[in-house]
Design a protein around this nucleic acid. Sequence first.
RNA 1: UGUCCCGUGGUGUAAUUGGCAACACGUCUGAUUCUGGAUCAGAAGAGUUCAGGUUCGAAACCUGACGGGACAACCA
Length: 567
Amino acid sequence: MNNVNMRDNEELKTSISFIEQFITDDLKDGKNEGKVVTRFPPEPNGYLHIGHAKAICLDFGMAKKYGGKCNLRFDDTNPVKEEVEYIDSIKEDIHWLGFDWDDREYYASDYFGKLYDFATGLITRGLAYVDDQPADLISAQKGTPSQPGTESPYRNRPVNENIDLFERMNKGDFDEGSRVLKAKVDMTSPNMHMRDPIIYRIIKSPHHRTAGKWKVYPMYDFAHGQSDYFEGVTHSLCTLEFEVHRPLYDWFIDQLKEDDYRPRQIEFNRLNLTYTMMSKRKLLELVREGKVRGWDDPRMPTLCGLRRRGYTPEAIKRFVDLIGYTKVEAINDVSLLEHAIREDLNMRAPRVFGVLNPLKVIITNYPEGKVEDVELINNPEDETMGSRFVPFSREVYIEQDDFIEDPPNKFFRLAPGKEVRLKGAYIIKCEGFKKSELSGAIEEIYCTYDPDTKSGGKASDKKVKGTLHWVSSQHAVDAEVRLYDRLFSHEDPSGQKEDDYRKFLNPDSLKILTGCKVEPSLSAAKPLEKFQFQRLGYFCVDYDSTESKLVFNRTVPLRDTWGKINK
RNA sequence: UGUCCCGUGGUGUAAUUGGCAACACGUCUGAUUCUGGAUCAGAAGAGUUCAGGUUCGAAACCUGACGGGACAACCA
């Protein structure tokens, strides 16, 4: 699909998501004084992944589309799991995607004071109490989804006693786990979250922003909706699993609000990708256990991993746009993501020659020592990218796969007696080859070239079926190429009850090729620069790359209909 | 045995809010090509989980089944 068609499609796209429907309805009803405020609320306990990109595109996208604002708010209510390192990476990744929050950078920890006061107010109104029971007892009293809970013996503790205990909890008078503050809602509610939820617990680890100021920290349910309220958020968009939390979200807002305004929680489906695992906790395990080379390992679904792999923000946003927002728990095919990056890179990646598994071809009738600079188009999809000159000589490397001694039917490449074009240069004919007697491996190919067939020349209209990429051996630059395949061999690696996801790790997810040969124009390539290695795929310079040693990551191979036929 | 959410080609989404199911990915043909890519033309593939009901007319509304998911962390 070219650019023009893409634009047409977007214009033709008339449907809007159910979320957007809610927003436009609210606007029509004159709610929130016609304002739209959203927020993206990551917990700084890990790196952002492509699932977050889906949320980011929605949160920032809706705000932008309706002339509103989107806040970045770090949901940092649990100091034991959170680190500054993550805050920095999250900001970097959002910016990389192309979104910005200006000065609206907030932290749930900014509201610790307000939340504490609100909790105290609830106590005063008899709507919260300190529970001295151990965790397992409190949990047992909650009942089960099908059985109602029972009330804590501390449920009707006097207000002043609750106030005193809560204050002392925060001073550090009590051990972690010894007491909690709970909201007094309804122990018999069919919704588990309404059964006197814990709203504060004692944590003595220092917080990355407030250090040792607090000994008591609010739970998610007690912080999120209220933070939305404090910030004037109108539409609080989150994933489906928070649906059952909504009554509690609303309950707290009911206790808090002093006017007509209230934030509205709307839930959409989380992104699931085949052969991919999105759980931050499990991704962290992969990193810690050394199953991958870090958060930005190009096999990771993290934004930094995808970036290193060679993905562009445009492709990710395009992908997100294609999958949509619904309430159906869907599993998206990775091939759609791959389609998105191919579509993008096809338009913008310069074409180059790179030989992954070199096989030397000697053109016996080509003068020794002669070098011709042949002109090659940088990108047939985009004339403005111009052309470049690539040296051609008597000895070139081609891909080992491009020669077969005894070829199958319809094999258009090189074989004894067969002719192919070396792209941009000449048509050559295979006259012979050298084979290792020991291993049977092909060591060299001997060809002759037809001087009348130079590309662009007058007599160059001779047709051959196959065209090969090549690199002049004396001019070739050495490179390491890292080939990536899916990290897991199972479509849904973390969804198997019986089996741990580690069982499905694909042992061939990374292949490192060290003897690769690339054309000399690549010698100055810098990390993150993207290319199409012709006939092979899209490649991106890795951070490990240096002037003396080039390293490329394969982002995604080209579609390969021939490879499919021959499987 | 509870509450809430969801069921549309293989996959993901649409269906102008009740007017005889569309698009994208994928798959398969053919054309074209100095990338077995891209591009172009085309094909196959669902009668909307099922059964009732309302209606001139239902994927959509109602009822009931069936199937899937979420909820019992002092995580978010």
